[in-house]
Nucleic acid binder design. Structure first.
Lengths: 204, 204
DNA sequence: CGATTTTTTGAATCATATCAACGTACGTGG
DNA sequence: CCACGTACGTTGATATGATTCAAAAAATCG
């Protein structure tokens, strides 16, 4: 292994302490370290394939992944993107132990710390971990609702504009056809929207 | 107060014990009861108005509510519906103490058990409550993601079909123009979709 | 460099929105 | 209990926005 494991654990340590009021004891962090398995996921490699049960939740130390479904016509639909310090995985499959209907793969060389559900549950005795987890779930819930709201109440142009504003990293690091899919439109439509935006900007 | 408070608490008790592996002690349930305030919300009455901070999460014992946003043109966009044994409230506003951008009002005469954030936190010493809460957040997260997926990958017809299948109660208890809004389409479009579905069914 | 992926463009088509009008149901006060 | 008013639902004509398909241009990678 040629990557820096110490850096990976440090990254997670900071993430947890930033998100909890309870301090994290040395012994507790040792428990957490023992539960988390470092993994490398190469570009285009699957972290999860639909039909499988999502065995791990993965804390991304470095890299970028995407979650998507494939419809009856073989079209991919991007559900979400994951970047550094995000947790990747299919919550439903992971928690309910049912086969996932989503794929997750890496779009960049990605380093993660992965944890299984059973190891996860063993960490419930660590207050800082629990607190971080609760915050994570709530934030996820909030983000989902906001995104839903954009679909219900905004046009495609507005959705793209908002995405650029809120997650410029997505636009920078993922190809345009995946961004389009994430917005629920075709790559052709997004291409035209972008063209139109540039024209409008230069005419002001 | 003319409604049956005992029934309300029983309803919540069942809800919690159904969702936790840890049993709920008598003394613990007394704590919970003390934190939860019974409220009646009349039809069309606001439970939350946009601009206000969402002071309560409400466990619905009986009734139906809706959460919606209002856009710049004054159009209402239905974000979600709440029925019996659901928790109503704006998570973002409640947890982050920021003004809500949503309205929540009752569509039927509704009885709830409401709890403030600070009382909520005092119940963190009750394991069954914590477990229920964690399950609730995860389920909410999963449901949001599924709904998102329908917007990205399904047509309006398919979305309506899925809604009928998964939440027939919504279709039964909320007016059609609100269902349309929930699906992200106009009331006219939903009317035409329904007409078309009836025609297709009778032609088989 | 060649091969593959990604993005752009154009033309035809389809789905949904919009606007306006009419029909229907519902509940509230007289 | 009826009549009236308001809210709800339907319909038609037209407009708009997004999709589809096909092809070419541009960017990226080994």
């Amino acid at each position: 292994m040629n990557w820096n494991i110490t850096f990976m654990y440090d990254s997670l340590f900071t993430y947890i302490t930033d998100r909890s009021t309870t301090p994290l004891k040395e012994s507790e962090f040792e428990l957490i370290k023992a539960a988390l398995i470092p993994k490398k996921i190469r570009k285009k490699q699957y972290f999860l394939q639909s039909g499988d049960i999502c065995k791990y939740m993965a804390f991304i130390v470095k890299g970028a992944m995407r979650q998507y479904s494939v419809d009856d016509n073989g079209n991919e639909h991007c559900i979400r993107f994951f970047l550094e310090t995000w947790w990747a995985g299919d919550r439903e499959s992971y928690n309910m132990l049912v086969p996932s209907s989503y794929n997750i793969d890496a779009w960049e060389e990605t380093d993660v710390l992965a944890i299984t559900k059973s190891d996860h549950e063993r960490l419930n005795c660590v207050p800082a971990w629990l607190e971080m987890k609760a915050k994570l779930e709530i934030n996820d819930s909030i983000a989902s609702q906001k995104r839903l709201n954009t679909f219900i109440s905004l046009t495609a142009v507005q959705r793209y504009y908002e995405l650029q504003k809120q997650y410029p990293e997505f636009v920078r690091r993922f190809p345009q056809h995946q961004i389009a899919s994430y917005l629920g439109i075709t790559k052709e439509s997004l291409s035209r929207i972008r063209k139109q935006m540039v024209q409008n900007r230069s005419s002001i």
